[in-house]
Design a protein around this nucleic acid. Structure first.
Length: 288
DNA sequence: ATAAGGCCCTGACCGC
DNA sequence: TGCGGTCAGGGCCTTA
């Protein structure tokens, strides 16, 4: 499940591979993978265009084009990008939804088993990105911003971290990891967090995201399902560093207490009941 | 404005 | 072996 660190790695890895290439053909095998245009408009808008950069905002990948339009992609749950030589054996993957044939003999394959991923081709990326909260790794994002964003909110802090209006790019894995490092119970209402709590959370969130980017992101599971891989097929390594995510029943790395798994805002949530001291429990997150 | 629930999707997994 | 049910989950939409 690509979150900010995985998408950031995509943008970085793809930059030297894509910048300067021209889009020579567009094959859409699953029309609904194109969110804002008809397949024909999408194809016409891309044909002959040159990719001039690769970037990221939240969990969105951005590919600015030479006519100032931007190809935007959200991978959602199971979307993956893969760059391959065009002359390799034909792509037999049944989950390939979109193929961009590029100058220089490469093809960019968008594969997505659950069909949640979406492309947008827009004149102004703000059409898609409006409403996204601050980038958590930018200096302009301060502990006070986080404090103000959760002030007065009854929802669990975990749910608020997942809300892209509050901070952009945080998903289930990194929300759990950041809350663990900060020693905050994920079920606590946002309103119960003090400025000191928010300061710690702000620091820990940035630490977790920066570490995960350095480690190439998280690649989960051995199955073919959602595991993220980088564009050349290299897996991430951050899953080896997860402290709580996916570790229900295993000892807390800090105190040895078994990690608990509960539901918060319909999301599976992992935490240490001892290190993440239960403040007041959110109305929507009582332990079962 | 906020919160909660449904929807989209498919494959893995479980129990019988 | 085979079947049906449940789960996973990001973002968007609808409903209270």
């Amino acid at each position: 499940m690509p979150e900010l660190p995985e998408v950031e790695n995509y943008a970085r890895d793809l930059k030297p591979l894509l910048v300067g290439r021209r889009i020579e053909a567009v094959d859409v095998h699953w029309p609904r993978a194109v969110a804002n245009l008809s397949v024909e408009e999408f194809r016409r808008g891309l044909l002959g265009r040159q990719i001039v950069n690769t970037d990221r905002r939240g969990k969105y990948l951005l590919f600015p084009l030479d006519n100032r339009w931007t190809l935007v992609l959200h991978l959602r749950m199971t979307g993956k990008l893969r760059l391959a030589p065009a002359n390799a054996e034909p792509d037999s993957d049944p989950y390939t939804r979109v193929v961009l044939r590029l100058s220089g003999g490469q093809v960019l394959l968008f594969r997505d088993q659950r069909k949640f991923g979406r492309f947008y081709l827009v004149e102004d990326p703000a059409q898609v990105l409006k409403g996204l909260g601050p980038e958590p790794l930018q200096d302009s994002f301060t502990p006070l911003d986080l404090f103000h964003a959760v002030q007065g909110r009854r929802a669990a802090i975990k749910a608020l971290l997942l809300d892209q209006h509050i901070v952009a790019g945080v998903g289930n894995i990194y929300a759990d990891e950041a809350l663990f490092l900060a020693g905050i119970d994920p079920r606590r209402p946002g309103a119960s967090l003090t400025l000191a709590d928010c300061s710690r959370l702000h620091t820990c969130l940035r630490q977790v995201l920066a570490e995960a980017i350095r480690e190439g992101g998280s690649t989960l599971g051995g199955s073919s399902l959602g595991n993220y891989q980088r564009p050349l097929g290299i897996p991430g390594r951050y899953q080896l560093r997860h402290r709580v995510y996916g570790r229900a029943g295993q000892p807390c790395p800090s105190c040895g207490t078994p990690i608990q798994r509960v539901k918060v805002a319909q999301r599976s949530t992992h935490f240490c009941p001892r290190c993440q001291l239960s403040g007041p429990v959110a109305s929507d997150g009582s332990p079962r």
